[in-house]
């Protein structure tokens, strides 16, 4: 059971990582990065590491995404055309 869940989450994470690299818009890349953090925290929870899961959910899919979004707002209009 765990193997199936973790495999599905892992494959989705790989696709999200590809999306983060090849997305045309930067905001799509940032959101797929947040998806990776969220799924990583679920995997940590399933592998019996609740401490790491809490930290990853708060930082990986919350605060760092907000920081990227604020940075994107400050660099608006300077993207490579």
């Amino acid at each position: 059971m765990y193997v199936i869940i973790i495999s599905v989450l892992g494959i989705t994470m790989i696709f999200a990582a590809f999306m983060a690299i090849y997305a045309k818009k930067l905001i799509t890349a940032i959101i797929s990065l947040g998806l990776i953090g969220l799924f990583a925290s679920i995997i940590f929870l399933l592998l019996a590491a609740p401490d790491v899961a809490i930290t990853e959910a708060a930082i990986g899919s919350g605060l760092s995404i907000a920081i990227y979004l604020f940075a994107l707002r400050h660099t608006e209009g300077q993207e490579e055309k």
Binding site: P50, D51, I54, A58, L63
Partner: peptide, 14 residues
Amino acid sequence: TPGGGFPGGAIIAS
């Protein structure tokens, strides 16, 4: 319980 200073601080910041 699971958690601690760093996760708690990150949750407060969020």
